[in-house]
Amino acid sequence: MRIAVLLSAGRHPVSGTPVLPRLEAQAVRLAAGLGEAVGLHAGPDAAAVADALGQGLGRIEHLHLAEGADPVPALAARLGTLAPDLVLAGRRGQGGPESGMVPYALAEALNLPLIPDVVAGSAGEGTLRLDQSLGRGALRRLVVRGPVVVTVHPDAPAPLAYAYGRARRGTVEAVTPAPAAASVPEIAVEERPYRRRPKLVKGAPAGGSAAERLKAATGESGAVASGRVLVEPDPEDAAREILAYLRQIGVLAPPAAPGDR
């Protein structure tokens, strides 16, 4: 099977070093298990995506674009030529507007179906079996007829370790892209340094003292704030309390009422 993996120029979330985004490294691993894969990157610089060579790709094609140019037309043209059986991408490429639109726009441009959030795949006869994550380990097992565009879910197997020797053997090829206009108008945005906002905490006290609100804001609240201690209760009472609590927070199914069936 011929596979194209879309690679984007990511940045390490802490250090800011140019790195291959983790999801795309996971996509590379999925691809390595399925067939012959080539990486595809459209952007000004391929330094960050060269990491993928050490993580399971043998070859990367670099479509040189100006900073800020829309990668979709160039990628669509190149993918049209390559005509792979499978296009793998992360959920949201980095380096551009990071809206996660590229795989969708590509699927539309290439008139291919798109399957999101895949964690595993295997090839059948002219078909692909894909496991799609529904969160928390639940899956939807799909059989699709290719070619198809697939995005990868973070629960997919962890990326392969970077091997310096493999990276040394891999190649990055520059491919001149066909000039094209932007397909979707971009949103005008105003940028500034990120400001962390308190995560919304369920059950945060609306009133209460400043200390309580602070606890709610820093995540030290919820269960902790309403901690309840039973000292040496009767085991039966303890069991009832526990089951009631587990049901209240919704992790344990309520006991079926008599006459349910």
């Binding site: 269960a223 309403s226 901690g227 309840r228 201690v229 039973l230 085991p235 069991a239 526990i242 089951l243």
Partner: peptide, 17 residues
């Protein structure tokens, strides 16, 4: 740390559960 803490021998609580 617990939202519901039972100070009791877990070994006794398990059969009750």
């Amino acid at each position: 740390r617990a939202g519901l803490a039972i100070v009791q021998d877990a070994q006794a609580v398990m059969p009750a559960l």
